[in-house]
Design a protein around this nucleic acid. Structure first.
Lengths: 191, 191
DNA sequence: CTGATTCTTGACCCCTAGTTCAAGAACGTG
DNA sequence: CACGTTCTTGAACTAGGGGTCAAGAATCAG
């Protein structure tokens, strides 16, 4: 019983995520969130407790979205090299095609709050570890399929790929598309 | 004539840099800067104009310091692979040995202000381009010395190295030392 | 020693961020 | 249809952020 919510919490979290992603945690004010979600400030506080808690929800949503997309995209038909390369391109292009180059929310969060917000730091770390596991699994898959050499250390290559991808998304804030594509090409050349 | 400055501007900029580096641009208040530098707020504004302008100076100083260190370190005796690997390790270890993992000021700035502050974005970009040039030059040097194969595309490898290094410094906020060292090892293995 | 000049400083100001709250609105129940 | 419950909302509050300023302290020139 009681008055029903006038909004879908998940939708509001997604809208808040866009705001945080675009402006960063600190520079996104409660007023910004109210505008981005169409829900009044007071109501947001009633539902989510605080700006920080809402941000936590957006980080969780972001992590789930990223993980889901990576898993799905890497699983499509093709060699490990092809799929990983395509995934890198996807992220780079998505970044460059948007009105603002927002990079990766998790990485931005590490840059902004890393060290000073333990929970946000852990959330970002978990996402990175998940990505590494996806890459490693896809490389091993490639080894079973025969498109990746048996001598390749899947775990070491997965770590390197994640590192390169993280850097690529930093560089995607300032470099042009051909350069970024070239890096993606070189990154997977060793597989 | 006139009353002389009671502080060395360069020293104050260096101290402000430490503050910005540790807490980020937005989270560093004028009060923080006054404490970090030992100079009263009013005096900082008198000398530097605004928080943003002081930050600009710290970015410049940071870029110069980074470039200088990279150039010097890469030039020491050894093969290209050895020197680049040592440089990666140096940065990783410096980050992990500090009381807080601050990563790279330029990258943090891109994460925090990227896109929304044109000048800061450009400054960070210039530093990255400089790094790429250093790597490329060192690889070509290796080719002349005979420790890097003639078939290696120096520019492409330099781009990849910078991307990997940027990612490494993001990951240095949450991963442990052995993992980061392993990535550095794998990164230079292809040279 | 006087003055013009350039520094130093804390007090002060305005504005916004983050949060709380009192009033009211939309339910389900009995 | 009254009643408890859970929502909605703008107004109101507090703290602190970024910046300004008036007063005074060093300096040098004449």
């Amino acid at each position: 019983m009681g008055r029903p919510k006038s909004f879908e919490p998940d939708v509001v979290i997604a809208q808040a995520m866009e705001a945080f992603w675009t402006k960063g945690y600190t520079d996104t004010s409660p007023a910004d969130l109210a505008e981005a979600t169409g829900v009044a400030k007071g109501s947001l506080y009633h539902s989510f407790g605080s700006k920080r808690q809402l941000f936590g929800k957006t980080l969780d949503l972001y992590s789930r979205m990223q993980a889901e997309r990576a898993e799905e995209f890497l699983a499509r038909p093709g060699t490990a090299k092809e799929r990983i390369r395509a995934y890198f391109m996807l992220l780079v292009d998505a970044d460059l095609d948007g009105p603002v180059r927002r990079g990766c929310l998790a990485q931005n969060t590490l840059g902004e709050l890393g060290g000073r917000d333990a929970e946000a730091t852990r959330a970002a770390h978990r996402l990175e570890e998940g990505m590494i596991e996806f890459f490693a699994a896809r490389i091993r898959q490639g080894q079973r399929d025969g498109d990746v050499g048996q001598d390749v250390d899947a775990q070491a290559q997965a770590l390197l790929l994640q590192s390169t991808l993280a850097g690529l998304r930093v560089m995607a804030k300032t470099f042009d598309r051909p350069t970024l594509h070239r890096i993606a090409d070189t990154a997977v050349a060793g597989l």
